[in-house]
Design a protein around this nucleic acid. Structure first.
Lengths: 197, 197
DNA sequence: ATGATAAAAATGAACGTTCATTCTTTTTTT
DNA sequence: AAAAAAAGAATGAACGTTCATTTTTATCAT
């Protein structure tokens, strides 16, 4: 147990050093030597935990993405109404993007650049399924617009990424009432027109 | 004239090679030697046009951003109503993101990573002013919600970036009626509740 | 329990490569 | 014939990765 515990600590240190450095310097200015230094480890040690740099960043992406979706669905259950389920998930996602901003920023960077390889991107998408299932149920109930998941995500969820980045850059600050307002915009943009609320 | 003309051609070739390579390989995998090769130029020649690699990518960003805003405002005039003005600008932006997708993709990558330095980012933002002015007018007329420019941009414009990237990845395809639908979502999310339409 | 020993984990230094940039020379333009 | 532009080869630094060695941990006969 002691051995395994120690290994996991090092692995975690490497992953969070990767997130930190890629967020602040970009992937192009994040050498293995700096990652090692920040994780208090020798460069050679990285290769005991990961195959190479690409593998390190792929695995980091997958872990952060899993953390994101776990967080998003933590308070959601399938027997909620569509509207209630959406509100539950949306607000958790907002929480994550605005409070766990280091993780969220890393994901934004990966999702907008070719630094993660295609298999790992696919792996990361899988965990979003509960939201897609909820939307499908909403469409069948006539509560959610009959448009593709991509459009729904673009309107309802993606604006939060932009706001997270703006906030991180110090451009402005989201308060609770703005978040409430943002939620209503999100819901309005995906519900059918004649739905109450 | 001939000399200047030739120079501008080379400069343009370098800038479009940069866009192409950064889009497809990422900044970290875009060496000067490849940029030179794609532009049919010696590596040393790049340094006659740009100070260094950072300068090349900064200048590329600023040029593409200017092209983006020029395109966005080309058919807009200040004497339009707020709603008409917004529709005009929004649809031009949608055109740009979906048709000029190489340029749009490059901007998305720059806006979500630390590859561009702060002064160049600021320079790029300036050209968006007409849209911000329109929104300010809309707020005063009671047509646009009393929320910050960041929120308006997040709801109304940013979703197009997500859709552009999804489309580029081949995940799905936007048709004309979906764009119309997206426009109505955008307008709904920023207009005041009691505005007609 | 203890100490010898084998296995695993970790390290710092070293390797070969690639990179951004510069230098010297050649070509093109004026 | 002078000046400007462009080129290819060269340079030194930095990078990802591996190697040879040391340190730590686990095993187990006594």
């Amino acid at each position: 147990m002691a051995k395994l515990q120690k290994s996991i600590d090092k692995r975690n240190a490497l992953i969070s050093a990767t997130i930190d450095l890629v967020n602040n310097n970009g992937f192009h200015a994040t050498p293995m030597s700096k990652i090692a230094k920040m994780a208090n480890v020798s460069p050679a040690t990285i290769y005991l935990y990961f195959e190479n740099k690409q593998d390190l960043v792929n695995k980091t992406y997958i872990e952060v993405k899993a953390k994101y979706t776990d967080y998003a669905f933590a308070t959601y259950s399938q027997d909620m109404t569509v509207q209630m389920g959406f509100e539950t998930i949306w607000k958790r996602i907002a929480d994550f993007k605005l409070n766990e901003s280091e993780n969220a920023l890393f994901l934004a960077q990966c999702d907008n650049t070719p630094i993660i390889d295609e298999p790992s991107l696919q792996e990361g998408i899988k965990h979003l399924q509960p939201l897609l299932d909820l939307w499908e149920r909403g469409r069948q109930e006539g509560v959610i617009k009959l448009v593709s998941d991509y459009l729904l995500y673009a309107y309802a969820i993606n604006p939060l990424s932009f706001l997270m980045i703006a906030q991180k850059r110090g451009a402005f600050q989201l308060d609770a009432s703005q978040i409430e307002d943002a939620y209503h915009s999100a819901w309005s943009s995906i519900k059918t027109c004649d739905t109450k609320n």
